[in-house]
Write a protein that binds this DNA or RNA. Structure first.
Length: 780
DNA sequence: TCCACTTACACATTTGAATCGT
DNA sequence: AACGATTCAAATGTGTAAGTGG
């Protein structure tokens, strides 16, 4: 899964490509996720439990190896925090809508000479649907069936570590849509659901091979609820003040409330006049003027506007014309929004022109300002009902390690002093992803490749030209998506159909807690605790489970799992394997919860289903939930949860990369039949691990045993059943790499090897880029 | 009637081509 | 002819309001 094969030769025809990358059609979008039994259970669970955030990785763990040192900083975290304190809402439209704020990231710790691919995926935080009531978001009912997973690949990918570290990276090209039939490659989301963006840094030894290591980052403050129209006026206000494109809606803008009202009045007046005109002398403009509304500031504008129109009216009045007013209003800028806006702007510019270097000075200043603002506002927000109450927020970055058990009070703390950078981000290792992946069965993973910015002089250099992919499995291209599939992780999507076998709420809870809860958190750790002691440690938020993932070499071969006992992560990969993916892909009907549970760690212990369940859930949901926990201020209220929220520091902007080397071989890992997560857990033959392990993104990178050794704690911990000690290297055989398959014309600006990714067969070409969709396809 | 969604609208920004001057 | 700066128009992004459908 991790690795993807690319076919430089573009030998694949559209049809084939479609087969390889599109699974949407295969998976019914609207099929109920939860079987009755499971659904009930899901409803019973506290929202928080459903979506626990991934535990942040401790710095120590992260720094074990150079790779571990990889860090990602959310540069506009202050802006995000402002939004999260209110309850971030993201508009989704049929045509696709960009995210605002955008993800403005700074990477460090990468090997300058190695190439990496940056991916963005957005996974559900929980299995709930939300409604804005009483000034806050309330979970109401179960989430809709999970949609096909799509991944947005940063236009610069693949690029060297030096490239990524030399500038601020932005995913502003990514668009969100609610069109389940979207053909543009946009990320498809359900409205009124809560999501968590995740960024994955995948080592690409060459174009054909992904995966020397994977680092996944989750910034809790970037969690949001999708809407088709803003529900919270505060969010609207923030967006208007922060987004340059909404400048016109500011008070001083021409599209401000005042101006709009004025226009409205004018229109009415015009219409009235028009009607009158029919009955009156067409040439008599005086009437029109008289009728025009006259009051206050509007008067001036109206008068002016009407003036030009008058002549026309006589000869053909056009009600619609009102342009003149605009000039009258002086533009003022204002406030705090501007600062954010400025930062955002810079961000955008930077991204667009990859060649352009960011201005640290100005940005810093902006950030600082923003932060200050945030700080002040943030605490208050927290105190008040956070918009994202239900989910416990994992602390991001650095804050976690140092403070294993943070007080809720921490949230309240503004953390003013902490610069975004300082916060270690939550790390979600591929495992986390995989965990979320419980959905794998249903979802497809598709990759979106925006066209690189014209300026991307900096564009990464071509990786390998040779089509020869190391992986013999060129044929296996299907698998790739699976491994990578980001979404699979979350809960919702993947629910095992088996109602009876479905994990109980308890299971979910357990799983969630273990993974999501912060170390030291008061979480109900009970069951969860079993997962791994480490969780409690600062490292708890890391997606350790995932890490181990992969190991088994067998995977590469397509054999059945090599290591069931292995840490879940590996399993995941296995389960997801391209071919196997089919198996991994639970029938659409599978309830989300089910999905979650099974995935996580089920695999590890077929023998200990119960234990596994918890893990599974964690993995699956952990990532998503983590963010929630992290937001103290967040406005997303959860229904009262039985579990205490883990204290996360909102400030944590940095996600510590979990350096996981994963590699899951798709084929190998997957059992012939996709088993339900639920069933899988129970079924010895198909270790739950696999399922759980299937992280959305497990790049196929060859799994490195040494990696596992470096993160032994993670692996074993994940699976309760596993011994705490470091996993046996043998257990985690190196992953086989999965080459990506290139499908079509390469984008001119891209290196030859990667061009294929860009231009997509599906005809996803946007003005700003083309998209490639990749979805896991079950292989039978 | 309520709610969620779609669409049209007006404005602002971005982008690229065209134009002009050196 | 080449290069850089400026201008213009189209494309795109944005939130709002009205309309639609369940």
């Amino acid at each position: 899964m991790l690795s993807m094969e690319m076919f430089p030769g573009l030998t694949l025809g559209p049809q084939r490509i479609g087969d390889c990358f599109y699974r949407e059609r295969e998976a019914p979008v609207h099929i109920p996720l939860f079987p009755p039994a499971c659904e009930a259970a899901a409803k019973a669970l506290p929202p928080r439990l459903l979506a626990p955030p991934p535990a942040p990785v401790s710095n120590e763990a992260a720094t074990t190896t150079p790779k571990d040192e990889v860090k990602m900083e959310l540069e506009n975290s202050s802006l995000w925090k402002q939004f999260s304190s209110v309850g971030t809402e993201m508009i989704i439209t049929k045509k696709g809508r960009r995210m605002f704020p955008g993800l403005k990231l700074k990477l460090s710790g990468l090997n300058p000479s190695l190439r990496y691919i940056l991916l963005l995926d957005i996974v559900p935080v929980d299995n709930s649907r939300y409604r804005f009531q009483g000034g806050g978001w309330q979970a109401v009912g179960a989430a809709e069936a999970r949609l096909p997973d799509r991944v947005f690949i940063h236009p610069d990918s693949p690029a060297t570590g030096a490239h990524w570290q030399s500038r601020t990276m932005s995913f502003h090209y990514a668009k969100l849509t609610n069109n389940t039939l979207d053909t543009q490659g946009h990320i498809i989301l359900h409205s009124l659901h809560r999501y968590q963006p995740r960024i994955h840094v995948i080592e690409a030894r060459d174009v054909l091979r992904w995966g020397g290591g994977q680092h996944s980052f989750v910034f809790p403050e970037t969690q949001f609820i999708t809407v088709t129209a803003y529900q919270n006026s505060k969010i609207t206000e923030l967006k208007i003040n922060s987004n340059p494109f909404a400048k016109g809606f500011r008070e001083d803008g021409m599209n401000s409330k005042k101006q709009r009202d004025a226009r409205q009045k004018r229109k009415i007046a015009v219409l009235t006049e028009t009607l009158d005109i029919v009955n009156c002398d067409p040439c008599d403009s005086t009437e029109l003027l008289q009728q025009a509304p006259v009051t206050g500031a509007d008067l001036q504008a109206l008068a002016l506007a009407s003036l030009p129109a008058l002549p026309e009216t006589s000869c053909g009045f056009r009600p619609g014309d009102t342009s003149y007013q605009d000039t009258l209003v002086p533009e003022q800028s204002l406030d705090l929004g501007q600062e954010f806006m400025a930062s955002q702007m810079s961000d955008i510019s930077i991204t667009l022109a990859s060649g352009i270097q960011e201005l640290p000075g100005s940005e810093r200043a902006n950030n600082t300002m923003a932060e200050a603002a945030y700080t002040s506002s943030f605490p208050a927000a927290q105190a008040s009902s956070s918009s994202f109450p239900s989910a416990p927020l994992p602390q991001s970055s650095s804050s976690f390690p140092s403070h294993p058990a943070s007080d809720p009070s921490d949230r309240s703390d503004p953390q003013p002093s902490i610069p975004p950078i300082n916060y270690p981000s939550l790390l979600s290792s591929s495992p986390a992803l995989s965990s979320t992946s419980n959905t794998p069965s249903l979802q497809q993973t598709s990759f979106t490749f925006p066209t690189p910015p014209p300026s991307s002089s900096t564009s990464p250099q071509p990786l390998l030209s040779s089509s020869s992919s190391p992986s013999s499995s060129s044929n296996n291209y299907h698998a790739v998506p699976d491994t990578i599939s980001p979404h699979t992780s979350t809960d919702a999507s993947f629910h095992a159909p088996s109602s009876t076998t479905c994990p109980s709420d308890l299971q979910d809870q357990v799983a969630v807690h273990s993974l999501l809860t912060q170390p030291g958190q008061q979480l109900q750790a009970g069951p969860l605790a079993t997962d791994s002691p480490s969780d409690q440690s600062s490292a708890a938020f890391m997606y350790q489970n995932i890490v181990p993932t992969n190991p088994s070499p067998t995977l590469s071969t397509a054999q059945p799992f090599p290591c069931q006992n292995q840490p879940p992560a590996p399993v995941l990969s296995c389960s997801l394997p391209m071919h196997a993916s089919s198996t991994s892909f639970a029938p659409p009907s599978i309830p989300p919860q089910m999905q979650n549970l099974p995935f996580s760690h089920v695999s590890p212990s077929p023998a200990h289903p119960a234990l596994h369940l918890p893990n599974l859930t964690h993995q699956a949901q952990a990532p998503s939930l983590a963010p929630a926990t992290a937001f103290p201020p967040s406005s997303f209220p959860y229904p009262p949860s039985t579990l205490p929220h883990p204290p996360f520091q909102p400030s944590s902007c940095l996600a510590v990369a979990s350096s996981f080397q994963q590699s899951v071989t798709p084929a190998a890992t997957l059992p012939p039949l996709a088993h339900n997560p639920c069933t899988s857990s129970s079924t010895p033959s198909y270790p739950a691990v696999e399922i759980g392990a299937v992280p959305p993104f497990n790049p196929a990178p060859p799994y490195r045993p040494e990696m596992v050794r470096h993160h032994p704690s993670l692996l074993p911990q994940l699976d309760p059943s596993l011994p705490p000690s470091a996993p046996n290297p043998a257990l985690y055989p190196t992953f086989k790499s999965y080459p990506l398959r290139l499908c079509q014309d390469p984008h001119p600006s891209l290196s030859i090897p990667f061009r294929h990714l860009y231009r997509q067969q599906h005809g996803h070409s946007l003005s700003q880029g083309s998209y490639l969709e990749m979805s896991t396809r079950p292989m039978f």
